[in-house]
Design a protein around this nucleic acid. Structure first.
Lengths: 335, 335
DNA sequence: TTGAAAGCGCTAACAA
DNA sequence: TTGTTAGCGCTTTCAA
């Protein structure tokens, strides 16, 4: 019974070969200063004993854990899970493991998460969320580890980040709608108080209107819809505004609006045009398919993680605020 | 400049209060054997110095990292991300952190992931995937840490797992189709070689046919579709079989088939009925909405994690193979 | 090229 | 109730 095969330690390997710990450590860490013959013997013993270095002990001794913390709102949201997929793949490429925490975009939970990750001595932090509260920002800085924001803006521009130019993108879709003759364009945001909604998405929308000398009608701006059902529930109110075009910040919400509108007997795009912003699978499965801003989600995550690896290696960043290109994908929900 | 505020250690706290490390450690670990007055002084110093225990050092000394490994195929798949959401929430509840690894359902990557997580001295492992290869199974057992499978079957029934009764569920939907008068029912699987597809889903389908004294037509069984696009591409072939009903193992695939069929001019459910199996958001956004087996995804993850916490606490499990109830959600894609 | 020895920051006997 | 003392398994000077 009791299969108590204790894991071999570096001592066991050293003893088996008849060298010191230091030598085994050098072999394990691929240091140059080991005679090939010695190295081979050590390698053989490692393989014999099935020795695997204990990462916790390593972390304590070297003060590097090869682990990064990832703080995200919700992994069941396709936008964030695709970002995180990019993060994870690059992390793996550079031999980092990922400690993942969902925050539901709640600053309180983000705060706990950051502190908790810091306790685990992460080497770096990837932060996602529609908002970076001052408190969270301070907690992040207190950890002393490098941080990169992915798909999230930092109003103060003090942290490195990877995004698309949300302002320009929202300005562009709005301007396109204006050019197509739409006079009343509804804007759907996630919140009334978060920078990414107000200072970027809304700002872009407003700018397009101003550029076209059009008034901004607050009645056309909706905030707070987060889910497909929220979108469906919003369809009626949007219809009431007489809007002939809708710009939505989220695909599931956009799809809810689309289906809600159609269930009411409206035709898309004949009566109302819709553009969404994340270009996830939801835009393609809709009928009609939904036109969308295409953010390179996977790449945003991947680039952010790559920046983080540089920071963890004490490299300087050429540019700390990276804006990746976005494109417009024209589908059937716009004329 | 150089803000070199080194983190306070347990020594600093002990020195500040004038007690030994052991006492501080006792306070931090909520041991009973500390005089209240001492405890208060220690707590005050901890708060003063902003002391936070170093989890890595703790892990090394105590041999518990309060970290669990989670191995999953793909976090951008709603089925798995919802399972993982349940896992994560319960893990947090019990103060565990989650080290997450995507494997793309590739046994080779799963093997690397398991070993790597073991190196990090995880306290337990949550495994998801359509397949558990012998090699991976051995690697898992070699780690010596408790394991629970979530939404994944272990043919050998040696590992604890949480699932629904896939066989019964697929039998039931097939039988329902039979009862509704369908004579040719197509079955869409993920693979031709994985237990969950062959020994459970397919077995349930076959059983329903046998119960009804109907022949099994291999031409009606399709395997290998993984994505929405795969489903769309499959629509034509399914139509060729003359099937009047389709049972699909995955929602995105089902939606692809649905849209593909409709694009070909077929009417759902008038010409073809469709039932899917995961009841993710994709089933509800479809037009017509897709009927589905409803697996309690979040709960499968949550229960699996709860079992794991018990195992990590050396508790015995009442039942190691948990089957959670499933239900049938009738929507518009079936008559 | 190799080894000795001092930690990394903490927990956990064992004593007192 | 508190302190002393070994470690946990490794990395990393510093010497040799």
């Amino acid at each position: 019974m009791g299969e108590e095969k204790k894991n071999a330690t570096i001592y066991d390997v050293a003893a088996a070969v008849g060298v010191s710990l230091a030598t085994v450590s050098r072999v394990v860490n691929a240091s140059q200063n080991v005679r090939p013959a010695t190295r081979d013997k050590v390698l053989a013993a490692i393989s014999d004993l099935g020795y695997r270095p204990n990462a916790v002990a390593r972390g304590l001794a070297s003060k590097k854990t090869t682990t990064v913390g990832v703080v995200m709102p919700d992994m069941t949201n396709l936008f964030y899970s695709e970002l995180t997929r990019g993060i994870d793949d690059v992390a793996n490429m550079y031999q980092y493991d990922v400690l993942l925490t969902n925050t539901d975009d709640d600053p309180k939970r983000a705060l706990t998460a950051v502190r908790n990750l810091a306790d685990k001595q992460i080497d770096g932090l990837l932060f996602m969320g529609s908002q970076l509260s001052d408190e969270v920002l301070r907690a992040i800085q207190a950890t002393g580890v490098p941080v990169v924001l992915a798909g999230s803006v930092d109003q103060g521009r003090v942290l490195p980040s990877v995004n698309i130019d949300y302002r320009a993108a929202f300005c562009e879709v709005t301007a396109d709608f204006l050019k197509a003759g739409n006079e009343r364009i509804a804007l759907i945001l996630g919140s009334t108080d978060r920078a990414i909604d107000q200072d970027y998405r809304r700002a872009g929308y407003v700018q397009a209107l101003e550029d076209a000398k059009q008034p901004v009608d607050e009645g056309l701006i909706f905030a707070g819809a987060r889910s497909y059902q929220d979108g469906k529930d919003l369809a009626e109110a949007i219809d009431q505004t007489g809007a002939s075009a809708v710009v939505a910040y989220d695909d599931e919400v956009a799809l809810g609006i689309l289906n809600g509108l159609q269930d009411m007997g409206k035709r898309v795009p004949e009566d109302v045009s819709i553009v969404s912003a994340n270009n996830t699978t939801f835009t393609m499965v809709a009928r009609p398919e939904i036109s969308s801003i295409d953010q390179p989600k996977y790449d945003i995550g991947a680039v952010a993680m790559r920046l983080l690896t540089k920071l963890m290696d004490k490299e300087k960043l050429d540019e700390a605020q990276v804006l990746l290109p976005y494109t417009m994908v024209k589908r059937q929900s716009t004329k």
